[in-house]
């Protein structure tokens, strides 16, 4: 195929697998980035739109519902107004019954920021072809990723389990915790959005951990050393930082605002 599109002289032998060099023949790299990295960027761009749609839906639905009028200490759960996040997310493992607003989510945020740092350190070690360092930092990233997932699991079970007090429903029954139809914290859509947004993010973290485990095995087997570069670590790193980035937005719009 190559010789039918090139304008080079036919005196030089042209092989089908030879790299193309002409400006209009694939030899030009306007973005100065490899195919794999570019495709990862475009995938992340499309993923950003998915999460953007989720968070925009959250904003729209939240603004559709009423706002609690009054100070935070007088706040009570009701389907009439949207809950104040720090009144919902105030539990911490092992400290039952204490009011610790946003403490656990702060810990989760720190874990994810830490995992991002260890991921960049792995990428940096890959640039230096330092196999032992790549392995070390990949393991740390896997550890923090698994820690985040466990925290997410606790957060979900706490949210689903709810408080002892619960919420008195219109039919006289008491609702504890949350499911997709009703919850004790506020309008039904509040719990639905919590499950969908944090669930979709958690699924991304889980996929990231799987990729990292695979990447660690490949590093240990010397796959990247033989290949001559650790670009795969970079590509998975891009994905991992994106997941951290999404958490930054989820954290702000779900827990702080």
């Amino acid at each position: 195929m190559a010789h039918s599109t090139t304008l080079e002289s036919s005196s030089t032998p042209i092989y089908a697998d030879a790299p193309r060099t002409g400006t209009w023949d694939g030899g030009n790299e306007p973005f100065k980035a490899s195919y794999g990295k570019l495709m990862m960027w475009f995938f992340l761009l499309s993923d950003a739109f998915t999460f953007g749609a989720f968070l925009t839906a959250y904003g729209m639905i939240r603004h559709k519902h009423g706002v609690f009028v009054g100070t935070a200490d007088k706040f009570f759960f009701s389907t009439a107004h949207w809950p104040i996040p720090e009144k919902v997310f105030n539990g911490f493992p092992g400290l039952h019954g204490m009011d610790l607003p946003l403490a656990f989510v702060a810990l989760m945020t720190m874990i994810l920021i830490f995992s991002s740092v260890t991921m960049v350190l792995a990428v940096e070690a890959g640039h230096r072809m330092d196999k032992a360092d790549v392995q070390k930092w990949l393991l740390w990233t896997i550890l923090f990723g698994a820690m985040f997932l466990s925290s997410q699991a606790w957060e979900w079970s706490h949210f689903i389990g709810g408080s002892e007090k619960g919420l008195l429903m219109a039919d006289g029954s008491v609702m504890h915790g949350a499911n997709l139809a009703t919850n004790e914290y506020g309008p039904p859509l509040f719990a639905d959005l919590f499950f969908f947004i944090t669930g979709f993010h958690g699924t991304h973290v889980f996929s990231g951990v799987c990729l990292l485990v695979w990447c660690f095995i490949a590093t240990t087997n010397g796959t990247f050393e033989k290949r001559g570069h650790y670009e795969m670590v970079e590509k998975i790193g891009l994905y991992w930082h994106f997941v951290d980035l999404v958490w930054v937005f989820v954290f702000t719009f779900f827990y702080l605002v």
Partner: peptide, 11 residues
Amino acid sequence: FMHLKHEVKSL
């Protein structure tokens, strides 16, 4: 972290 600041302008 994602190194975008150090990529080319068009990217």
